[in-house]
Amino acid sequence: MIEFKNVSKVYGTGAPALDNVSLRIESGEFVFIVGASGAGKSTFLKLMTREEVPTSGSIRISERVLNDMRRSQIPYLRRELGIVFQDFRLISYMTVYDNVAFAMRAVGAAEKEVRQVVPFVLGLVDLLQKKERKPDELSGGEQQRVALARALANKPKILIADEPTGNVDPIMSREIVALLSRINDDGTTVVMVTHEHDLVRMFNKRVVLLDSGRVVSDSGVIAAKPKEEFCPSPGAQALLNSNGNRFKKDKDNKPKAGESQ
């Protein structure tokens, strides 16, 4: 479970990057966080990974309250999160197998466990046959799948995908989200940040729209604020318009039953 309660984040003396955000993501949910550049998506993820601390409000992930978390506990929080980035971040001189194994070895996993888990997660992303290849011998989509396998290697409870389809073609983008969806079916919470509206429309998942640091809609709802208070940016407005019936009013601010695939 991920819970943001009245969370605001202000960098320096500028405008808030997140402004009084309240959001609850239940275990096992799949949530798209969408918004234009500068909407606060990155700050949202930085707060989740405890890279940043909120200026006000509180954040909880499972039983951990991130605000007053001791620094020594941060690595253990991260072990519950799997993170996938837009730019893959694979180590070029390591094979596919070693890239995935590196994530396990870095947290002190036993070699026996590495030998069991790495082939399993590579099988999940359908890359077991390419385990001896180097990243530059793979396509963009395959590299992202390796990154995904690496994020899964330590059996995270929550998978965070930060624009994972930003560097791959549309077909591969769909495949990657489908893969995330399958991982979600197995019980892993997935939080995917993206600005690809078309891709979001293809999957019947909960969508949280951020604009100027606010949650302006959750699964199509402009719920938190009265209409006159909310003035979406052109990018957010376009997204609202393009998503048609996906953005419906939801008083509980929660995903509706039957929305998951």
């Binding site: 690595p75 971040r89 330590n154």
Partner: peptide, 16 residues
């Protein structure tokens, strides 16, 4: 720095 970044992401302790 890439390896260090990945180690941090996956939850390696500072001593590790």
């Amino acid at each position: 720095r890439l390896e260090i970044g990945i180690m941090r992401n996956v939850g390696a302790t500072p001593w590790f």
